[in-house]
Amino acid sequence: MALIDLANPSRFLKFANGAIPWLAGVTVLVFAFALEQAMIAPDDYQQGATVKIMYLHVPSAWLGMLCWGLMSVAALGTLVWRHPLADVTAKAAAPIGAAFTLLCLVTGSLWGRPEWGTYWVWDARLTSELVLFLLYLAVIALWNTVEDPSRAARAVAVLTLVGAIDLPIIKFSVDWWNTLHQGASVFRVGGSTIYPTILLPLFIMAGAFTLLFITLVLAAMRNEILRRRVRTLQLMQASAAN
């Protein structure tokens, strides 16, 4: 089935109905394998067992960025090609991306407490992630402010693309800001190369998270299409009542 065939919402629904159970099954299997690998992976010689938090922290950071990338492509799809599924994708992805970014922040702060002695430091990476989270919340707020879905989609698409351009600039300036203020109690045990025994489980975990993300986005897109059908039917009901 070509990608263009999925442009028809009914055909997409059929595809999603078929694909979601399979995807969910594969996700569960890969997750089981990844968790097992993460559990038997050796501890870091400096950080000890807390390195296990990395298996959650890094994949959710990765998904937080991947999701904004997906939303940017969808935004182009909305503005340039008027692809019917583009704004559905963008709307479905936003809360999921926000949730994974939040998970990244929470795990980062739980990792920071034993390592740095405080839940939060204004470390460059964590701070950029926080700004990304704020941008996700702004996008969700914008979706929830405009009533007509196609008008909301265009406004959100512009915001998403501006965000995509601004995010690297934010990252750069936060890095600059952070090195400017050396006084912060940030002490990173970086520099050491990560051993393959830790790296391989991390890759498997990232794969499991990505599968989970794809499944969730597909399911949320299906919900969004159904929600628009409900809206259309309700409009019919309202105009039939007049």
Binding site: A49, I53, L56, S60, T107, R113, P114
Partner: peptide
């Protein structure tokens, strides 16, 4: 052997 911060790890997995 060094599971000094097991509560933080558990909290992180619980959050996930």
């Amino acid at each position: 052997e060094t599971t000094a911060h097991i509560d933080f790890i558990a909290a992180a997995y619980a959050a996930a």
